[in-house]
Amino acid sequence: MKAYLFLALAIASEIAATSMLKASNGFTKLYPSIGTAIGFAIAFYSLSLSLQQIPLGVAYAIWSGVGTAITAVIGIVIWKETASLSTAIGIVLIIAGVVVLNMKGAAH
């Protein structure tokens, strides 16, 4: 269970870092740039700790899939990026893929 808490921290840190990456404006703004570096450092460290108990394929699928889906929603809500049917379908497919990989991981 502790491994999944580290994975959740990795996801949250990656989402925050990616949001700061957008705010950094190509690393031209200091504080968002620092936030990006710190966020990704925490994300990768936390992910590495989760990998001590969670299989790589499962952990990475959850980390990247959930992070991508939530980041896409943040892009739409906070950054006013365009939402489309293909965006919604893509997010649903990402979530479905994470669910399928977790079912595979739970079976072993």
Rank of each mutant, 00 (worst) to 15 (best):
M1Q: 13
K2P: 06
A3L: 10
Y4H: 15
Y4D: 03
Y4G: 11
L5N: 08
L7D: 08
L7P: 09
L7V: 13
A8R: 06
A8Y: 01
L9E: 02
L9I: 13
L9A: 12
I11V: 13
I11G: 06
A12G: 08
S13W: 04
S13L: 01
S13F: 04
I15T: 01
A16L: 11
A16E: 01
A17Q: 00
T18C: 02
T18Q: 06
T18R: 01
S19D: 00
S19M: 06
M20A: 12
M20F: 14
L21D: 03
L21C: 02
K22R: 11
A23L: 14
S24A: 06
S24Y: 02
N25V: 00
F27N: 03
F27H: 09
F27E: 02
T28D: 00
K29G: 02
K29Q: 11
L30A: 09
L30T: 09
Y31S: 08
G35R: 10
G35P: 06
T36F: 14
I38D: 06
I38K: 12
F40K: 04
A41V: 09
A41F: 11
A41L: 13
I42G: 10
A43F: 00
F44H: 01
F44S: 01
Y45T: 07
S46M: 09
S46Q: 04
S46F: 04
L47T: 04
L47P: 04
S48I: 00
S48C: 00
L49N: 11
S50R: 10
S50Q: 07
S50L: 11
L51T: 09
L51N: 07
L51Q: 07
L51I: 11
Q52F: 09
I54H: 14
P55I: 07
A59K: 10
Y60R: 07
Y60P: 06
Y60A: 10
A61H: 08
A61G: 15
W63T: 04
W63H: 12
S64P: 04
S64R: 01
G65Q: 10
V66R: 03
T68K: 05
A69Y: 00
A69C: 08
A69H: 05
I70V: 15
T71C: 01
T71E: 02
V73H: 01
I76Q: 04
I76K: 03
K80F: 00
K80P: 03
E81C: 08
T82G: 05
T82R: 14
T82L: 11
A83N: 11
S84F: 09
S84I: 07
L85G: 09
L85Y: 09
S86R: 12
S86F: 15
S86M: 13
T87L: 14
A88W: 13
A88M: 13
I89D: 05
I89E: 08
G90C: 08
G90K: 05
I91Q: 03
I91M: 07
V92H: 00
I94N: 02
I95L: 15
A96H: 02
V98R: 05
V98S: 10
V100N: 07
V100P: 03
L101H: 11
L101V: 08
M103Q: 14
M103D: 03
M103E: 08
M103K: 14
K104I: 15
K104Q: 14
K104W: 13
G105P: 09
A106W: 13
A107M: 15
H108E: 12
H108R: 15
